[in-house]
Design a protein around this nucleic acid. Sequence first.
DNA 1: AAGCGTAATGTTATAATATAACATCTTTTC
DNA 2: GAAAAGATGTTATATTATAACATTACGCTT
Lengths: 164, 164
Amino acid sequence: MNNAKILREFPKGKHKHSACINDAMKTAEATCQERGIRLTAIRRRVLELVWASHEPVKAYDVLDTLRSERDSAAPPTVYRALEFLLDEGLVHKIESLNAYIGCGEPGHTDAGQFLICSDCGDVAELDDPELVKMIAEKASQIGFSIEQQLVEVTGFCAQCAPAS
Amino acid sequence: MNNAKILREFPKGKHKHSACINDAMKTAEATCQERGIRLTAIRRRVLELVWASHEPVKAYDVLDTLRSERDSAAPPTVYRALEFLLDEGLVHKIESLNAYIGCGEPGHTDAGQFLICSDCGDVAELDDPELVKMIAEKASQIGFSIEQQLVEVTGFCAQCAPAS
DNA sequence: AAGCGTAATGTTATAATATAACATCTTTTC
DNA sequence: GAAAAGATGTTATATTATAACATTACGCTT
Ligand SMILES: [Zn+2]
Ligand SMILES: [Zn+2]
Ligand SMILES: [Zn+2]
Ligand SMILES: [Zn+2]
């Protein structure tokens, strides 16, 4: 069996998270450049804040920070930026948490699958074509044609797994 | 490959939906009886309202109806009933819609997988052990142990599929 | 049947998440 | 630099969900 492609890993022990953020911002810049769309100051900042950790971030937490930096920040400020970032695949929404997380590899075409650690709260993103395919096949067995897949799995990451 | 077990089908053409509701209510009665828990009038009525169609139902739509029948109905009335029904596996929450749908086969142990038709809005529920297993395996490849799975798929049911 | 403890519901208030609608400003295009 | 399109500002409100405490109903023992 193929291994799942890991779009976004769980962080391993201590890591320099500023590097994660830097990578993500560079990738976003390049992606927007390429597509001829504008990563404005607000959008860039919201993306940074979403990437603040490996945990999904709440819209109103982003707003709180933004408010401290910019008088005019209001809910639409954040939701519009998030909408842009979602549309461009730079962030994803974790539906089961009403929270947002940076995409580990913008541009991936298949749906991502999210692993959410109940203990540390961190999230990893996989892209497993085999799984995507199986879901599509199962659906088509009953005549259902898939447009979009949502897979969110809750449990324990390697670091938080109950000692065995 | 095994076929997915269908816990709740898409309705086929015209069907007598009162039969769906009756079945669901009988199953719920029996389930609660067996478990020694109380399907009170409010809980029963909320379950009926969730089963009102094959589409997921919003909490506040349930509330609107309940208000017309019972002066004391308020948000906690509905959310408490839903919490009970969710805990007992009599209904499921469709996270991507913030809406609730009756379980087609209360007592199933695996996570259900939901197929949501973008056109008619109806939802089917599958339980495919093979899929559940594959997700668990993919997760365990990166050291993640699963507690709960969420699979919600959007697309077109057989009836609504674009003519081919 | 009376009394007790638990479970369920009533009631009021508020938290958390998200969008509508319209005004203003900025950037791009011609 | 004027027009058009895109982005942001601003105010208000819609939608979804929970907290906290009071009251009532139920199930059990005596
Ligand atoms: Zn990191
Ligand atoms: Zn992604
Ligand atoms: Zn039916
Ligand atoms: Zn079910």
